[in-house]
Nucleic acid binder design. Structure first.
Length: 286
DNA sequence: TTATTCGGAAATTAAAAACA
DNA sequence: GTTTTTAATTTCCGAATAAT
């Protein structure tokens, strides 16, 4: 390799080509450029304390390691949090809510089938069926906020809707509500909606309506209605090929949505009484 | 085919640190 | 003080790209 010149001219420096150091240099001569040395060379060598640079690098590396670790933790957490939470929805809770539903709600909201929910494998398989899991969590969220509902393992209900048990019910209901929405992000429920998908949207509407969160409630009502139309529940032909039990559910669900969009009062502040009023208004409309 | 550009390896240089 | 280490800067090789 040829030795480097002491200093390359401005043009050779800019062009990153070897300068022969002559005046003018061969490159400038061939290119018919003025061969100049106007650039002021920078001072070479470290500036300031080297120890400072090393400690700064160490600090940066440590910071990067911490950030990477936090990112890894966040990533694993975000993946985990979209899965159903083991143990949150117990068999006892589901059975209690289903019992309460058929005893007090079914007459006003007959969108679930007693025969279908009586099958024991539903609870056993719910962790493998996001649609069913979300429908059950939404159902439990709605039922546990109903006045008179007693959580499994708690005492008899009182007449005071603001007592401690009622508070526990609302906390439980809220956790089921969050669980439903969280797990729903885990799969594309709008791609192949089922009756349970539409029921879940409807139950979310009912929950948020009961909580006085009307914009969110109307969002879910509209979602349920849109999914129902996409599935053709507004056409009689759709029911011809359906299982008779599902057809009955679907027909009731469609008309319940129809009624809810037109007759449920638009704005009400949340109170337990308002929640009762909502359930009663469904009975009247039905 | 020739000319030009430019990424980056290697060389150069000087300041800071280590050592006697 | 001298030597070693480290880091900033420069030179220019050679691959990629553009121009003819």
């Amino acid at each position: 390799m040829s030795t480097a010149v002491k200093r390359a001219c401005d043009a050779c420096h800019r062009r990153k080509v070897k300068c022969d150091g002559l005046q003018p240099c061969r490159n400038c001569d061939v290119s018919q450029l003025e061969c100049t040395f106007n650039a002021v060379p920078q001072k070479k060598g470290p500036k300031g304390s080297r120890a400072k640079v090393i400690s700064e690098l160490r600090e940066n590396q440590t910071r990067a390691q911490v950030q990477n670790r936090n990112a890894a933790i966040n990533e694993s957490t975000s993946i985990r949090t979209l899965e159903p939470t083991p143990g949150l929805l117990t068999g006892d809770m589901i059975k209690s809510c289903i019992h309460f539903y058929f005893a007090h709600i079914y007459s006003a909201m007959p969108i679930l089938s007693p025969a279908q929910l009586a099958q024991s494998h539903i609870i056993d398989n719910m962790y493998f069926d996001n649609d069913m899991y979300c429908m059950l969590t939404a159902l439990c969220a709605f039922i546990t906020m109903q006045p008179g509902m007693v959580l499994p393992g708690m005492g008899a209900p009182t007449d005071d809707p603001y007592d401690q048990d009622m508070g526990a019910c609302m906390v439980t209901s809220s956790s089921f509500l969050n669980e439903t929405e969280r797990v729903r992000k885990n799969y594309e429920y709008t791609q192949k909606p089922t009756l349970n998908t539409i029921c879940t949207s409807y139950l979310l509407f009912a929950c948020y309506y009961g909580l006085g969160m009307h914009p969110r409630a109307w969002f879910y009502l509209r979602e349920a209605t849109t999914l129902a139309h996409l599935e053709g529940l507004g056409k009689e032909d759709t029911y011809a090929n359906m299982d008779p039990v599902d057809a009955l559910r679907a027909r009731r669900l469609y008309w319940l949505l129809f009624v809810a969009e037109r007759y449920v009062p638009a704005v009400q502040p949340f109170t337990p009484e308002a929640n009762c009023h909502f359930t009663q208004s469904l009975r009247v409309a039905g």
